[in-house]
Design a protein around this nucleic acid. Structure first.
Lengths: 342, 342
DNA sequence: TTGTATGCGTTATCAG
DNA sequence: CTGATAACGCATACAA
């Protein structure tokens, strides 16, 4: 039973420390974990550990404890300002709780998200926050068979039993349109992203509802669809202006809005005097454009924080019923939509 | 020696599969890893694995293989556009190689980075890309005793034996100033970040050197120091303009530059006609401001990519000599600095 | 080809 | 208080 220990020059383990201290690995481990031991043993083990520079192996510890102290965040694009804000908020919460954050960029890949959900069974993280841009049946199935705790950020069918953080971009759009109407605008255009995405669909519905509610002209020529990026916003605005002349534009996110602003300024159109502009998400971009951009905050940071917290709570209490938190939208008025008409 | 298996309802392991298939765990493991086995065994094991939904435990596998297939990235602020660009580039490279990315926000905390370096001994990741904003002696010591592969992004003393990716912001500033002089400007201001940071010091030196080289007036009133953020840029520009009247401003990063742009436009100063503006880092912000911002690219994406690749290479060959890659700066000219004088 | 047994590094149980 | 030993789940050297 001789233990062959032909190791080249590997990192010290409890064995190393124990041998050097002349005690059993059990005693060494106990001291290292702050459990009871005689002053004598305590002393010897600490000295030995310090001498060899012992650091406990996280993987071995994880195997024992069945926890990795890591949480995963999966978003479509870790470069998108909205996700950056969420990620930053999550990282803070998670770190404070002693966890690390593993980030996944899922790209537009629909299967990728399902793979990640199934990947939870590998137990490389203790839980996952998923921010899907589209939700398919495959998602729902994968969610129901997920091997670990999952929090989904974004709208979900009501009967899905998963911790869920959402916002209400539908009424968020309403906030923006009400504000524009109050400040004297009537012909309010919408520049939206793809309608087959969760956010795109919600914003579209919100716009149509608000338009009716406020008694605005039901002119579909005022609606333009592109994608959610800056360039798309520029181009969509070009198309829009070649066709109609609104007195305000609501954009489905800040990237689009900044693109729209660019096109407006290029054409010498004054903002907000001639056309007012409101974006959505209230990212840093809104503050940093000129004129500064009004924007409907959907609480990205708060959603990130909340999602992280729900996940942490779930780890503590796996049996509590699924939570559903809705972060209310909030209109932030800046120069791009200030009232200028009497 | 009867193996008591009182597990509640735990995830299936090789044991589960082996027992169900009626073979040894060794055979089960072999089949699952695509090694040789009789068609009979192959069949039974696959069926059993599928039936119980077996997924190998990543932690146990890591303990055996001594690798986690995770890499860490530590930056000061995961919300900073420059780091976002690096992170995104790294994530792509790393994922393609089958690794996951663990992100750490170190904040301004100088000890935090040292802790992360020492934390490598825990072996929770296979390697680390560190992007320190300041480099102290403590960093150098921690680097020399690092328990795992490390790549540092940013300038480092020449004798440090670490894989290192850097850029040359010193000559990057020169590029900007040369361009501004060629387009007719002479009184070129600098708005910089803190001089005790690595980037701050480099840009300052680059500015002074270029000023001499180009025979520009050595007027220190043209230099303003703040921090690297948008608001700092705004305020620094206020202070600057209250004091002097430059015909161009070079800003130490894009955030500052956008802040400067804001102040200039607020004061009704035309850009670039009256004052030209050049930023640094060439982030998305540069493209998205109006007028679009000229900026010196320091290849954030490329540095991220390279750092990731160096780390991956190092994992394959731990003994190769330390590599030092310098990504050259590149001036991207946009509307904010186009020549307007004859 | 197959099974037995061992180690990866840690923690915990259970005698002594 | 201490030490021997098992177990976490996987992969493999070695023997059959």
């Amino acid at each position: 039973m001789a233990r062959k220990r032909l190791q080249g020059n590997r990192a010290p383990t409890v064995h190393t420390v124990a041998k050097l201290a002349g005690v059993s690995i059990a005693s060494a481990s106990r001291v290292l974990n702050g459990l009871g031991a005689s002053p004598e043993t305590e002393q010897r083990v600490r000295a030995a550990a310090a001498k060899v520079g012992y650091v406990p192996n996280a993987v071995a510890r994880s195997l024992r404890s069945r926890r990795t102290d890591m949480l995963a965040l999966a978003v479509e694009d870790i470069g998108n300002p909205v996700y950056v804000a969420m990620m930053r908020a999550m990282e803070t919460v998670v770190r404070r709780a002693g966890y690390r954050l593993v980030v996944h960029a899922t790209g537009a890949d629909p299967d990728g998200e399902v793979e990640l959900l199934d990947g939870l069974a590998k137990r490389y993280v203790d839980g996952l926050v998923l921010v899907p841009i589209r939700v398919t049946d495959a998602h729902l199935e994968a969610l129901s068979r997920a091997a670990g705790p999952v929090v989904v950020v974004g709208a979900l069918p009501d009967d899905v039993e998963v911790d869920n953080v959402r916002t209400d971009s539908h009424s968020g759009v309403g906030l923006a349109l009400s504000h524009l109407v109050e400040s004297g605008r009537r012909r309010i255009a919408l520049i939206n992203g793809p309608l087959d995405t969760v956010p795109g669909a919600a914003r579209q519905a919100g716009y149509l509802a608000a338009r009716d509610r406020l008694g605005l002209p039901a002119d579909d020529a005022l609606i333009e669809i592109g994608d959610f990026r800056y360039e798309d916003g520029r181009r969509a605005t070009e198309r829009l202006l070649d066709r109609v002349r609104p007195d305000a534009i609501f954009c489905a996110n800040d990237l689009i809005a900044v693109g729209a602003l660019h096109t407006l300024l290029s054409r010498g159109i004054r903002v907000p005097e001639e056309i007012a502009l409101v974006g959505m998400d209230d990212t840093d971009l809104a503050r940093m454009s000129f004129p500064q951009l009004s924007s409907v905050s959907l609480g990205s940071e708060e959603r990130g924080q909340t999602a992280a917290q729900l996940l942490l709570d779930r780890l503590v209490d796996p049996d509590r019923p699924p939570a559903r938190v809705t972060v209310p939208p909030r209109l932030v008025i800046r120069a791009s939509s200030r009232a200028v008409r009497p």
